[in-house]
Nucleic acid binder design. Structure first.
Length: 272
DNA sequence: CTCCGATCCTGATGGC
DNA sequence: TGCCATCAGGATCGGA
């Protein structure tokens, strides 16, 4: 799925069409994504105005003029949001249609149905939002923070980084890339990183995510920017999806290891 | 508490 | 060409 840079790209592309707009219709074209969709979503949102578009980790929140009512979206593995017109041809996986007063229609497409769409009270957030770790680009996420957080942790550092309760927004692509850039093996027990490792890793994560956002995210199979301009960060990836190919730094054949059921590509010579 | 594997779903890809 | 197995950006749940 969309990781932090892709969700941030989505948020930024959606904002000009959404902010200040009244919701004129909200149509659900399936009973459930990962969880059942509440049938009263339309009744609750139609007539409301969108006052803010917030990204929290990989979550998107469309806040309304009712301070206790926001639309909570998550793109899962295969979800994307696009700006359409109501008459545009509907695809079989266009499951949520949000029509706005300016004539635009925001569509959530999600072939694998791993995404989420629901109403929340932002003053009383559900566990999936309340238990999130800090933003990786925020001031709270420092080398010292990661060092203290990982003491006595035995899980691989890659799994640690992808746990949204530890730090938000990092998924399989950017975890693999950041560890490569930091020279740290994805299999290392998180607690085995020293203070210098953590400092380096946090610096690389921040720089990597900023570059990816600037590039409009990584467009693979399913992710597209809402305005149709696909991200081009795929051209900047060093190791993700490149097992068997030469390391861009030293030429050694990149290897793959499965961690938490996910492919994890690394350079056996550059990463320790 | 922490960690790991299984699971939800459909599409793309590669081997035979 | 057709068929089948495998894998895919994520999060959650149950069990060890």
């Amino acid at each position: 799925m969309p990781e932090l840079p892709e969700v941030e790209t989505t948020r930024a592309a959606l904002a000009p069409s959404c902010l200040g707009q009244t919701i004129t219709a909200l149509e659900l074209r399936t009973d459930a994504l990962r969880a059942p969709l509440a049938p009263d979503l339309s009744r609750r949102f139609v007539g409301r105005t969108i006052t803010a578009l917030e990204r929290r980790g990989k979550h998107l929140l469309l806040h309304s003029d009712d301070p206790q009512l926001s639309l909570h979206l998550h793109l899962g593995m295969s979800g994307s949001l696009r700006i359409c017109a109501p008459g545009d041809l509907l695809g079989p996986y266009d499951f949520v249609l949000l029509s706005l007063g300016n004539g635009r229609q925001i569509r959530l497409r999600d072939p694998r149905k791993f995404g989420h769409c629901g109403a929340i009270d932002p003053t009383n957030p559900p566990p999936a939002l309340k238990n999130l770790g800090p933003e990786p680009l925020g001031d709270e996420f420092t080398g010292d923070f990661l060092f203290r957080q990982t003491r006595k942790r035995t899980a691989p550092i890659k799994n640690h980084l992808m746990n949204q309760e530890h730090v938000v927004g990092i998924g399989n692509i950017y975890a693999a890339e950041a560890l490569f850039l930091s020279g740290i093996l994805p299999t290392r027990p998180a607690g085995s990183l020293d203070a210098g490792d953590c400092e380096r890793l946090v610096a690389e994560i921040k720089a990597l995510l900023k570059r990816a956002i600037a590039a409009g995210g990584t467009t693979l199979k399913d992710f597209h920017s809402p305005d149709g301009r696909d991200g081009h960060f795929i051209f900047a990836l060093d190791v993700y999806g490149k097992a068997g190919q030469p390391c861009p730094r030293c030429g050694t054949r990149l290897e793959n290891v499965v961690l938490g059921g996910r492919a994890s590509v690394f350079c056996p010579r550059c990463q320790h």
